[in-house]
Design a protein around this nucleic acid. Structure first.
Lengths: 172, 172
DNA sequence: TTGATTGCAAAGCATTTGCATGCTA
DNA sequence: TAGCATGCAAATGCTTTGCAATCAA
């Protein structure tokens, strides 16, 4: 936990630096939003973050959260993620290894994973086409361990049960 | 070209079959939309398709194009693709190999590619987490061969030139 | 003081839905 | 004839923008 506080300090410095470099201003709202973001480890939508932030400070508007998340992304602290349900999520970027996602289409669970081999094959692929990659996104959709189990259990109990789909569309 | 006509025939059969199986109805609009879709090889948004279709038959509504693209997807003829600019594109699915995409963030060009090794590594990854994959999506963003070249040419001519970004947001 | 920042309300966009009318089976 | 399909307009959901008031530097 003490180590966590250290990390936040570093990230806050980065944020301030970015703000100063860009001729922007330090405000209470931005500080609150940054802190809540740093304190939360999951994938947050702007809406999610807004809900938590307004507990700490009801004077923060939805719009400011949107704008600040953009700012955090520019500063290199956050990264936009599309999980496939139409909205934009944000995850920590600074000091976090690059990774990809498996998304359970029943419960919405998101598993992060990383494969050096896949990364290398992608680069090799790009090179083959004379393409200079800047970043990439790999999502695997499917059923997670838990839901696979639940499905089996349900099947024996109530054969016609419908799964609860959270990610609503096929992702190309 | 004669071979093309054959292909369309097969795909039309599939569509009719799907329509009958589902208790739906064969209509002129659906036929027109299907034909235009089959005839076009690129990645089409609903809007794109709508524009072409209304040349053939101005009596087709935007809504019907949306609904029919869903239908084509259900029938297995089309596949939804998210290229990262917020809208949904469709590509041919039937008799087309699975593939992934490289997207140029300057000109918007989309390169299709396939790597058996990447596929296998993904499955291995999923298995490691007890995750049962249903489908996946891999996008590599970057600069295509052409734009890389143009960039260099421009740089020597007008050092401060701004690139035209078509894919507007970072894709997680 | 000056110009960035905020929050509200309104606008934007892609997509979906309600509903009266039109058509297929 | 029954009920699916259509197309318009209105609604939706997420995100962005305009703008007057507020606040940091």
């Amino acid at each position: 936990m003490a180590q966590k506080a250290e990390e936040f300090k570093k990230e806050k410095e980065i944020f301030l630096e970015h703000i100063q470099k860009s001729g922007l201003r330090r405000t209470a709202q931005r500080e609150t939003i940054l802190e809540v973001f740093l304190r939360t480890e999951e994938h947050l939508s702007s809406e999610d973050l807004y809900r938590i932030v307004r507990n700490e400070d009801p004077n923060v508007g939805q719009t400011t959260v949107y704008r600040t998340l953009k700012l955090l992304t520019e500063a290199g602290l956050a990264r936009e993620v599309r999980l496939g349900d139409g909205r934009t999520y944000y995850e920590h970027h600074f000091d976090h290894e690059h990774h990809d996602h498996m998304i359970c289409t029943e419960c919405g669970e998101v598993i992060e994973f990383f494969s050096q081999e896949i990364e290398e094959l992608q680069d090799a692929m790009a090179e083959k086409f004379g393409f200079k990659p800047t970043h990439h996104s790999l999502r695997i959709l499917g059923i997670c361990k838990n839901c696979k189990k639940k499905e089996k259990d349900l099947q024996s109990a109530a054969p016609g049960a419908q799964p609860r789909i959270r990610v609503k569309t096929t992702i190309g």
